[in-house]
Design a protein around this nucleic acid. Structure first.
Length: 490
RNA sequence: GGUUUCUUGGCCGAGUGGCUAGGCAGAGGUCUGCAAAACCUUGUACGGCGGUUCGAAUCCGCCAGAAACCUCCA
C-alpha cells in the first residue's frame, strides 16, 4: 500500500512502476477464450493470473474496470486468413446454430471460472456483438491508408505500416526487408504482401455467420475484436492489456498495429503475459492433444490423473508458481499443492481459535509488509504463499503455548491472512458450511464429547467402539491434547 | 534457421552480487491408553567451462540441453 506496484511490461521486457492513467481508475483488458470447447488447465492460467491482478488492484484501492472478451466469431482454424471459423466448424459437426455452440461453452466456461473462484469481469463483450465497432475501426484504418480492399475483403497493409511505425517491438520480430520488397508471385492471392492480415473477410457462400459491410457480406478478422472492444470500453489509451504468451505474436502485435494505424498511437500502456502450463515439458494445447479439461480435473476422469483435484487445489497449484514461469503439470506436484493448501487452511482455522495473551513473544509486524512487498514485485504469489507458511509456524507455536500473542497482534494476523488468502489470492475454504453441515457438526460434537467422557473414565472399550463406528461411516477421528478433530474421508 | 526465454537440493518451485525462500516427500523428536493426525527440528542446491569482482548460483562470454513463438492454441 505504502509502496508501489511494479509490473513486468512485455513491451519493454522489464519491471516498471505501475502508474495508472486516471487514478484511482484502472482499465484492464484480457483476451478471453474462443468458446468452441471446454476450458482446459491452460485456460485457467490467464484467468487466475489476471484474477489475481484484478483482486490485488482492487484490494489496494483502485477502481478497476476489467474487460475480458468472449471470442465467438472470426477465429479461423488456419493461418490468419484461411480455413474454417472454429465456432462454425463445431456448429456444423454438432448440427447446432453457431450461437448455440457459443452459449453452451460460454456457460460451461463461466461455471468453471466460478469453481476456480475467478471473479467475473466488469464487462464481458462478445465479438459478434461488436460488428459495427469493428467495421468503424476498419474504416478508420482505411482512411489512414494502412489497409486496402481486395475482392470484398480488407487487409491490413503491414509493409506500409512498417514504414511509418515500428513493427514487431512486442515480439522482437523484424519484418524482413526482402520479404517486403518481394512481390507475391501468386496472382490468386488477395494479399499484396504475405504478412498482411485480414481485417474483414468476404464470406464464402457456405459460411453461416456473416454481416453486411461496405465491402461485402462477411465477417471480421480475429485480431480486430480486441482492438475494437478494448478501446470502446477502456478508451483510446488504457492501462493494462493481458493474455497468454502464445498470443504475443501475431495476435497482440497485430492489435498494436491496428490501434496505432487507426489512432496514431498505441493504446496499451502495460502489456502483461502469463506463461504456459506444460505437461511433460511440452505445452498443453489443443493442437497437441495433450490437454486436460478443468472438468476432468474436478472429477478425475482423465487417464493421466491419479485422482480428482478440487478447484482450489488447481488454483493453489497455479498460484504457487510465478505467472511468468512455465509450470509443469504432474500428479505429484498437484498433490503436493493439495496438501500444502490443506495445511494452510487448517492453520487459518486454528488462527480463529487462538487465545490472546498479555503480550506478544512473536514478531508479526513485518509479515503483512512482506506480503505486500511480494505482491508489489510483479504479483509474486509464490512468495506471498511462502510468507503465509512462515506465519503458520507462528500460529502453531502460539497454539502449542510455546509463544504468546497479544490481542492487537492477533487481530493484525487474522486481518493479514484474510486479506491475502481470501481477498487477494482468491482461495476459499472448500468445506462448505450450510444447514446440513451445521447439523452434522453439532451431532459430531455431541458424539465425540461422549467419547471424551468415556476416555476420561478409562472406558476405552466404549471410546474405541465409538471411533470404530464413525470410521465405518467414513469419518476419521483425531485425538488432540485438549479435545478432538474429525474429518470426512474422501 | 529467426525471435524470446529457461536450466536451482529426491520432486515442485521462489530469490538474490556477500545474509535459512517456501511446499511435498524423507529423517529425528514431542504429544499420546491405543491409533491416526498434528506440531517441532532437520536439508546448504543453483547445467558445463571461462571472465569481471575482495566475493557470483546471482553480472558478462562461450558451450551443452530444453521450451515457447515464427500456422490455430491461454
Amino acid at each position: 500500500m505504502n509502496q508501489s506496484l511494479y509490473i513486468h511490461n512485455s513491451l519493454t521486457r522489464r519491471k516498471e512502476l505501475f502508474e495508472p492513467l486516471n487514478p484511482p481508475h484502472v482499465g484492464v483488458y484480457v483476451c478471453g477464450p474462443t468458446v468452441y470447447g471446454d476450458a482446459h488447465l491452460g485456460h485457467a492460467r490467464p484467468a487466475i493470473t489476471f484474477d489475481l491482478l484484478f483482486r490485488y488492484l482492487t484490494h489496494i484501492g483502485y477502481k478497476v474496470r476489467y474487460v475480458r472478451n468472449i471470442t465467438d466469431v472470426g477465429h479461423l482454424e488456419n493461418d490468419a486468413d484461411e480455413g474454417e471459423d472454429k465456432i462454425e466448424k463445431k456448429a456444423r459437426l454438432e448440427q447446432l446454430e453457431p450461437m448455440e455452440v457459443v452459449q453452451y461453452f460460454t456457460n460451461r466456461y463461466h461455471h468453471n471460472m466460478e469453481q476456480l473462484n475467478v471473479l467475473p469481469p466488469s464487462i464481458e463483450p462478445r465479438a459478434s456483438g461488436h460488428i459495427i465497432e469493428q467495421i468503424e475501426l476498419i474504416k478508420k484504418i482505411l482512411e489512414a491508408g494502412y489497409a486496402y480492399e481486395s475482392n470484398g475483403s480488407v487487409y491490413f497493409s503491414l509493409d506500409k505500416y512498417a514504414k511509418s511505425y515500428p513493427y514487431g517491438e512486442l515480439s522482437g520480430r523484424v519484418l524482413d526487408e526482402q520479404a517486403i520488397q518481394t512481390r507475391n508471385l501468386d496472382g490468386q492471392d488477395e494479399k499484396r504482401f504475405p504478412l498482411d492480415f485480414a481485417l474483414w473477410k468476404k464470406a464464402a457462400p457456405e459460411h453461416i455467420m456473416h454481416w453486411p459491410s461496405p465491402w461485402s457480406e462477411g465477417f471480421p478478422g480475429w485480431h480486430l475484436e480486441c482492438t475494437a472492444m478494448s478501446t470502446k470500453y477502456l478508451g483510446d489509451t488504457f492501462d493494462i492489456h493481458g493474455g497468454g504468451m502464445d498470443l504475443l505474436f501475431p495476435h497482440h502485435e497485430c492489435e498494436i498495429a491496428q490501434s496505432t494505424a487507426s489512432l496514431g498511437h498505441e493504446s496499451v500502456r502495460y502489456w502483461m503475459h502469463n506463461n504456459m502450463i506444460t505437461i511433460n515439458g511440452q505445452k498443453m494445447g489443443k493442437s497437441l492433444g495433450n490437454f486436460i479439461t478443468l472438468n476432468e480435473f474436478f472429477d478425475g476422469s482423465h487417464q493421466l490423473l491419479e485422482k480428482a483435484y478440487t478447484p482450489m487445489a488447481v488454483r493453489f497449484f497455479i498460484l504457487q508458481a510465478h505467472y511468468r514461469s512455465t509450470v509443469d503439470f504432474s500428479n505429484e506436484a498437484l498433490q503436493a499443492s493439495e496438501k500444502g493448501l490443506q495445511r494452510l487452511m487448517s492453520g487459518i482455522h486454528l488462527l480463529q481459535k487462538l487465545q490472546p495473551s498479555e503480550k506478544s513473544t512473536v514478531n508479526i509486524d513485518d509479515m503483512e509488509q512482506k506480503c505486500y512487498q511480494a505482491m508489489n514485485d510483479d504479483l509474486n504469489s509464490p512468495m506471498v504463499i511462502a510468507h503465509l507458511f512462515d506465519g503458520l509456524r507462528i500460529i502453531n507455536l502460539v497454539n502449542d503455548g510455546k509463544e504468546t500473542i497479544a490481542e492487537v497482534d492477533l487481530q493484525q494476523l487474522k486481518k493479514t491472512y484474510h486479506h491475502f488468502v481470501f481477498d487477494v489470492l482468491g482461495l476459499k475454504d472448500e468445506k462448505q458450511t450450510n444447514k446440513q453441515t451445521e447439523l452434522i457438526n453439532g451431532l459430531m460434537n455431541h458424539i465425540l464429547q461422549m467419547r471424551m467422557q468415556a476416555k476420561a473414565n478409562k472406558d476405552f472399550v466404549t471410546s474405541d467402539s465409538i471411533r470404530h463406528m464413525l470410521n465405518e461411516l467414513g469419518i476419521e477421528v483425531k485425538d488432540r491434547k485438549d479435545g478432538f478433530d474429525w474429518s470426512i474421508q474422501d
